[in-house]
């Protein structure tokens, strides 16, 4: 039997534009998701430890293939305040999804067929980054959305005290600078697609702060801590000139 109740259903909204469907690996320790977007440029890794759910019960390993497109529609109409419960019995072909709106007490139940998802197995090695910078998530989202209105990619430059997001395109250029208190092993400069950063920043509601881990020649990491877990977004570095 598997039963998990989750109070941050907005997490689904944060990843739906990157991943259309995914296996959810359910273990006694918690739920994990690890998947790559179709263009192979971004990877989403989510870990929700059992302690973050009330209740959580999983007595055997279970992989649920879930359409995030469908899940998003279900969660969207329930609103941000809804809790989401997943239930599965010994038949892994279907699972139950229960949405509960705390304000009104309304309960919506679905029986969903588990999808058979042909998913790459990803091994994510431990990486030492040149810069690991934590900034307010709302500021990060504001910067990404603002610059992306006119421009397509952003160059990140970080020094001891400041991180600078600068961008240029046909219409001209723009930049945003933020103070930070993080440690750097040295100054760093790299370029990232704003379209993806805007996507990653949809996780803003999950956490007050976001941590950017940057190095020139390895995937960049954008991480949001959630209660008893995290949502991590990796982005491929640019290659060639």
């Amino acid at each position: 039997l598997f039963h998990a109740r989750f109070e941050q259903a907005g997490l689904v909204d944060a990843i739906k534009d990157l991943i259309q469907d995914s296996d959810f690996h359910c273990r006694d320790s918690g739920i994990a998701l690890r998947n790559m977007d179709n263009s192979q440029v971004a990877v989403v890794v989510i870990l929700l430890e059992a302690g973050g759910f009330l209740p959580y019960h999983c007595d055997r390993r279970l992989n649920l293939g879930i359409s995030l497109t469908s899940l998003t529609k279900i969660v969207h109409y329930a609103g941000d305040e809804a809790t989401l419960a997943l239930k599965a019995n010994d038949n892994p072909d279907t699972f139950n999804l229960v949405l509960e709106c705390l304000q009104t007490g309304c309960i919506i139940k679905y029986d969903i067929k588990s999808r058979d998802i042909d998913q790459e197995h990803l091994e994510i090695p431990k990486t030492d980054y040149a810069a690991t910078i934590t900034i307010p998530s709302a500021e990060f989202q504001r910067i990404c959305r603002n610059l992306s209105q006119l421009l397509e990619s952003v160059a990140n430059e970080a020094s001891e005290e400041r991180i600078k997001f600068s961008s240029s395109g046909d219409i001209g250029s723009g930049s945003a600078t933020l103070r930070h208190n993080s440690d750097l092993t040295g100054p760093i400069a790299l370029t990232i697609s704003l379209k993806y950063l805007v996507n990653f920043s949809k996780a803003t509601a999950l956490s007050y702060s976001v941590t950017l881990s940057l190095s020139s020649e390895v995937p960049q990491l954008v991480e949001y801590k959630v209660e008893s877990g995290f949502a991590r977004f990796y982005f491929a570095p640019q290659i060639g000139e």
């Binding site: 192979q40 440029v41 990877v43 790459e120 990803l122 390895v218 640019q238 000139e241």
Partner: peptide, 14 residues
């Protein structure tokens, strides 16, 4: 021209 690398080359199954 500069391009975006694939994450499979970093995270693909060993």
């Amino acid at each position: 021209p500069a391009g975006q690398g694939s994450l499979l080359s970093y995270f693909g199954q060993k």
